[in-house]
Amino acid sequence: MPIDEIDRKIIQATQAGLPLVSEPYQAVAEQLGLSAQTVMLHLAEMQQTGVVRRIAAVPNHYKLGYRFNGMTVWDVEDGYVDELGQKVAMLPFVSHCYQRPRHLPEWSYNLFAMVHGKTEQDASEQVAIIAELLGAQARSHEVLYSTKILKKTGLRIGG
């Protein structure tokens, strides 16, 4: 999914958010010396190629009361990880689900799923649902709750 220079500029110009004005794409376009039509066309093309997942009002889970953010990590047999990952991703309380490499011996987990609960009990119920879904295919798991958000910024590309 190659992107061109205009795509890159649009991505960078919108990562802090579209302005809250009547014609936000026009405002972005003016900032970049482009037409609103060009900005919208490039965004539509990037949506088609999958570079842009979606255009969204992105909720801040933490501020909406989801204080228990758990990174659940699972040791799943490699042959089943894709099938199971897709199932876990469909659970309504899972926001992200990824396969990542193991680092043996100290790290044996290859499936990561982020869960968000308003209470610790909510979050542990969510973990239990994932555990049930994975069944015997998951040899072990851990839940890593975040105890401190030390830094959180939007996408930026270090140059």
Partner: peptide, 9 residues
């Protein structure tokens, strides 16, 4: 909301 805009893969 943290922002309104495109979410990049």
């Amino acid at each position: 909301i943290s922002r309104i805009g495109p979410v990049i893969a």
